[in-house]
């Protein structure tokens, strides 16, 4: 585990941005890590973006701000454009092409596409499972930092309904990152 791992997720309200951060944070707590997660709210909810900023560390966390995120999960164009430049060269942007239409090819960091919305529609006929798909993808990307089982377990704890579908969605996302 790195000394400090920063994960930003941002999109519209209702996409499960806060829940995504919460699941990863909960999984980290299970592994005995220290966790902070800030969620933006209030006026930003309407029209703008929702953002969760997660910091994981084996040590006490000072700043809870993700100024240079290792991972940025972009779920809207507005969010992508607002935070893309904060991702350092060694960082990674995971974006859903259903929401982020235009990619800035000049960014120094890696950018990977995850068509979570489309995968959710194709496999379950419902968009709501795209969040679990994204978490599965993150589980793959975080391999070596956070345990896959811990993330899945936290996901099932935090989302008490549709356990089988969420498990399947998680695997779909995980395998998509191969």
């Amino acid at each position: 585990m790195k000394d400090r791992l920063e994960i930003v997720a941002s999109g519209f309200g209702g996409q499960g941005v806060v829940r995504l951060g919460q699941v990863l944070g909960e999984a980290a707590v299970k592994e005995g890590l220290r966790v902070t997660m800030l969620k933006s709210h209030g006026t930003e909810m309407r029209g703008g973006y929702v953002r969760s900023q997660v910091v994981l560390s084996p040590k006490t966390i000072d700043s809870p701000m993700c100024e240079n995120p290792d991972f940025f999960v972009a779920l809207s164009s507005a969010a992508y454009n607002r935070f893309k430049d904060t991702v350092p060269q060694e960082g990674l942007i995971l974006f859903d092409p259903a929401f982020v239409e235009e990619i800035d090819a000049k960014l120094p960091c890696a950018q990977r596409e995850l068509p979570a919305k489309q995968l959710a529609l194709d496999n379950f006929g419902r968009v709501i499972f795209s969040n679990s798909i994204a978490l599965g993808a993150m589980a793959r990307l975080l391999e070596g930092q956070l345990k896959k089982e811990g993330i899945l377990e936290s996901l099932l704890e935090i989302i008490p309904k549709f356990h089988q579908e969420n498990r399947d969605a998680f695997e779909i996302g995980y395998n998509y990152m191969n």
Binding site: T36, K39, P64
Partner: peptide, 9 residues
């Protein structure tokens, strides 16, 4: 607000 609304372990 960062303390009251923010999550932490």
């Amino acid at each position: 607000q960062l303390i009251t609304d923010g999550f932490e372990d």
